[in-house]
Design a protein around this nucleic acid. Structure first.
Lengths: 334, 334
DNA sequence: GCGAAGTGTGCAAACGATTGTATTTTTGTA
DNA sequence: TACAAAAATACAATCGTTTGCACACTTCGC
């Protein structure tokens, strides 16, 4: 069964393909009558535009590429949903790639998207990304780019951010108010602004309350469950904190694993707060206090910024989405 | 900055674009010397194939489309990782779409993928899909198709399945052995084979143990957290089961919500087993017994089947991936 | 009733890669 | 050396759309 092309429609209607193309695009240079005729015939014959041919000719497509570290993170999957919410009705489609926190895979994903002539790229950087040439290339080639959450500031494009600073600040403040005395921080790679800000929010709160800022209490390797566990084990046998503010929930989970193993009671002897409010946070035992990010709203903002960029409206918007502290058992000290 | 095309390379090397094209494709009709020359020049000039032009000419691309209900389900995101594991090294790239359990979005996603001339489509059906014309269209058009997990049998294509029957059978058997007497089932849409099989495994186990098969104990609306809650509330005030085997973990979660609300102790008074082994299953309180599906392996099998289909090796493979019961607190009756 | 706008279509050349066929060059052999 | 066979490359059409330009026809003012 052959696909129907505009040439087929043109033949049937005894007009030229150019007219059909214009008619379908709603060009006012073709008369209303012809436009209706074409539309009807196209429907009748089951015409589907060949977006490949269109993209080749126009040099770009209505497909937007999106690169995220992992799609199975609560936050990212919600951002994706938010992006689809705006993009799909606007006639764009979305291609999703995972970098898996690997710089190489991130680069490859971008190359693939470029080879596919995507109309724009949305990205949240991998934790391992320390070089940003691949982003600069996009800017140089004039390809609409929007960064979100894990962004690099030096790249000139729209950026949609979480209020990491305030979330971390509130979380730490809350730990202090709950009576913990030696509050440490398990953070992510400091090359990412998002994690730097969480660290800054943490230290601001510590300073503000007149507590000693002890760099021995700050760890910034990775924020997986495993690294959280390892960090906690290490800290417990050396600097002995009595609370940890973690830059991620999986990391907090690992910390709690370690505390359980050492028979240290949460929250009585030790307080823990995470970040991201993963679904498991309210289900685990003890339930985990966490900083909530509004992924869906972020997604809608990201998509809007992308559309604006594509339409040439403007290119360098920076928006901050508020975060919110959710207090649960893991830091409920009395 | 203009993109480099094969014409540019051809000009530099004083050969024709055809030779360059063949050289890059590794065609033996062009001499080894020329091939090396072309490869070197291409690298030097930073050539990147325009897959759009290639897809237009060849009528298909090396992009594979994948449609899943939601990407943020543990199982699906692992299948996706497995698929990428095989597809990417083999030179294919993956486009992921979410149907969000909506039939309309599923159809639209397929249309979009078709319009993008994907080389094949991988799909796990939405719960609401009761009509399968969109899949038949793919078969008719000879587009490689692989269904997994939530499949429709009447469509002729490769299918990779979980051993739903056995998983459900083991789960139910386990509930019986643990001493529960009135074991109900909260299942998903029976139009999906996966859920029918879970039901069948359940009833096989019930019959085998000589328990009464009571259709009043079987619910098959949906398997969201909310529907699990509602079903449990309904069941508790009427047929009064003392255990429920749920076709999904979110659903089991809803059931436990209801039990907590009614102050019914799990597992002492009531046993619950879920399906899918979502990450939260081992973290919640009580920890949830569940049937584990090996999503990653399923993904690799799915991808292999797709590649075979594309290469014309064969088209109708059916594989079953084993499932495994993980017993945790929610059904640990002494 | 004549030129000037204005309106609706057609023509043809792109976009970049692929591929069947034709042509040239090289190789081997008598 | 000549000539056929084999190897390497060139030519040109094609995929389906888009779009600048040209052309025909209508409409209108003077």
């Amino acid at each position: 069964m052959k696909r129907v092309t505009i040439n087929d429609i043109a033949k049937e209607l005894k007009v030229t393909p150019s007219t059909v193309s214009r008619a379908l695009a709603g060009n006012t240079r073709v008369s209303v009558k012809t436009r209706e005729l074409v539309a009807a015939k196209a429907k009748e014959m089951g015409y589907q535009q060949n977006v490949i041919a269109s993209a080749l000719r126009k040099g770009k497509s209505d497909t937007i590429g999106m690169v995220v570290p992992r799609i199975n993170r609560h936050f990212f999957s919600h951002v994706i949903s938010g992006v689809e919410e705006i993009l799909n009705p606007a006639g764009y489609s979305l291609v999703i790639c995972q970098s898996g926190e690997s710089f190489l895979k991130e680069q490859k994903a971008i190359d693939m998207l470029l080879a596919n002539q995507v109309g724009g790229i949305i990205i949240s950087l991998s934790e391992k990304t320390k070089c940003f040439d691949h982003l600069q290339k996009l800017v140089d080639r004039n390809i609409p780019l929007v960064q979100f959450d894990r962004v690099h500031n030096e790249i000139s494009c729209s950026k949609i951010l979480n209020d990491n600073f305030n979330g971390a600040y509130l979380a730490t403040k809350h730990l202090i108010k709950s009576g913990y005395k030696r509050i440490g921080h398990v953070g992510g790679s400091q090359s990412l602004k998002a994690y730097r800000e969480r660290y800054l929010g943490y230290s601001k709160a510590i300073e503000e309350e007149g507590l000693p800022v002890d760099s021995a209490l700050v760890y910034t390797d990775a924020i997986t469950r495993e690294s959280g566990y390892n960090t906690a084990i290490k800290a417990l046998s050396s600097v002995k904190p009595d609370a940890l503010f973690c830059a991620g929930d999986y990391c907090a989970l690992g910390v709690i694993d370690a505390l359980k193993e050492k028979n240290i009671s949460v929250p009585d002897e030790f307080g823990v707060v995470g970040f991201a409010n993963e679904p498991f946070a309210e289900l685990m035992a003890p339930t985990l206090s966490s900083v909530e990010q509004n992924g869906f709203e972020m997604g809608t903002r990201v998509a809007s910024a992308m559309i604006k960029d594509i339409e040439g409206k403007y290119k360098e918007e920076v928006e901050v989405i508020p975060t919110r502290l959710i207090v649960r058992e893991s830091s409920w000290n009395k």
